[in-house]
């Protein structure tokens, strides 16, 4: 089995409305398991993902499974197999659950079985408007949209944000199962979830990569996590 990275990012710069939000970010994501992208609020994690997708203007070299994608437009990049689960779910609230899912389908036989087994809650709610779902259910719709297709990699941004502990556990299980099928780059503020799921970790600060390593080792280093993530053992380590 090849150990070539599935995604590499080199010297990525990105700006929003003329303001630099990602400065010279370089990292690579291995072809298996979950890699965490960590950092305090506002360091540019979401912007990094949006820059990879071409949703904000960027420069730098981005390679997906050996192919340069930094000159492509967003829909082409996604068609190349990059699945995106954005921060704040971004379901189409006036569309039904079924419509949200159908819209996301890019292949002949979408993985509805997988999605239904991971998110049984959604099965009976297919014809409900997505905007009337709970936050947790909306997150499931958002994850399901990406999991219906056979992707090369998933970029998942804070999937447990604002969820009750029970739902955090559900989402964690779903991500764990999904990670057996597809590598995931995961932005996550809940460090308990990171400990459970992530192999490698990349830490951003001030729009740059300041640390890369094994997730559990980084999280075990109190001084480091305190300095880079703004948390320590005294605060319980995670924002549950």
């Amino acid at each position: 089995m090849s150990n070539e990275p599935v995604l590499t990012v080199e010297a990525l710069h990105a700006s929003i409305a003329g303001q630099q939000v990602v400065e010279d970010v370089s990292f690579s994501v291995p072809p298996t398991g979950i890699t965490a992208l960590l950092g305090r609020n506002g360091v540019g994690k979401t912007s990094t993902l949006r820059a990879i997708l071409g949703l904000i203007s960027r420069t730098g070299a981005i390679t997906l499974a050996g192919e340069r994608i930094d000159g492509m437009r967003t829909h082409r990049i996604v068609q190349r197999g990059l699945g995106y689960v954005p921060e704040d779910r971004e379901v189409f609230s006036k569309l039904t659950v079924a419509e949200n899912l159908t819209l996301a389908v890019r292949q002949k036989s979408p993985r509805y079985e997988l999605v239904d087994s991971l998110f049984p809650d959604l099965v009976a709610r297919r014809s409900q408007a997505a905007g009337t779902l709970s936050g947790g259910q909306q997150q499931m719709v958002s994850l399901a949209r990406a999991l219906l297709n056979d992707n090369t990699i998933l970029l998942v941004d804070e999937p447990t944000k604002g969820l009750a502990p029970k739902l955090v556990a559900d989402v964690t299980v779903a991500l764990e199962e999904a990670s057996h099928l597809v590598p995931i780059l995961l932005v996550e503020q809940n460090l308990e979830v990171v400990k459970k799921l992530a192999g490698g970790a990349i830490v951003l600060s001030g729009g740059r990569v300041v640390h890369t390593g094994v997730a559990t080792e980084i999280l075990a280093d109190e001084a480091l996590t305190h300095r880079l993530l703004g948390v320590g053992s005294a605060t319980g380590g995670a924002a549950i």
Partner: peptide, 21 residues
């Protein structure tokens, strides 16, 4: 029709699903 309704709500998310809006 579905793409148009989705696009009225959130256009960039439509492109992020791989659709040329």
């Amino acid at each position: 029709g579905t793409i148009i309704r989705a696009g009225v709500e959130n256009r960039w998310m439509v492109t992020a699903l791989g659709i040329d809006v």
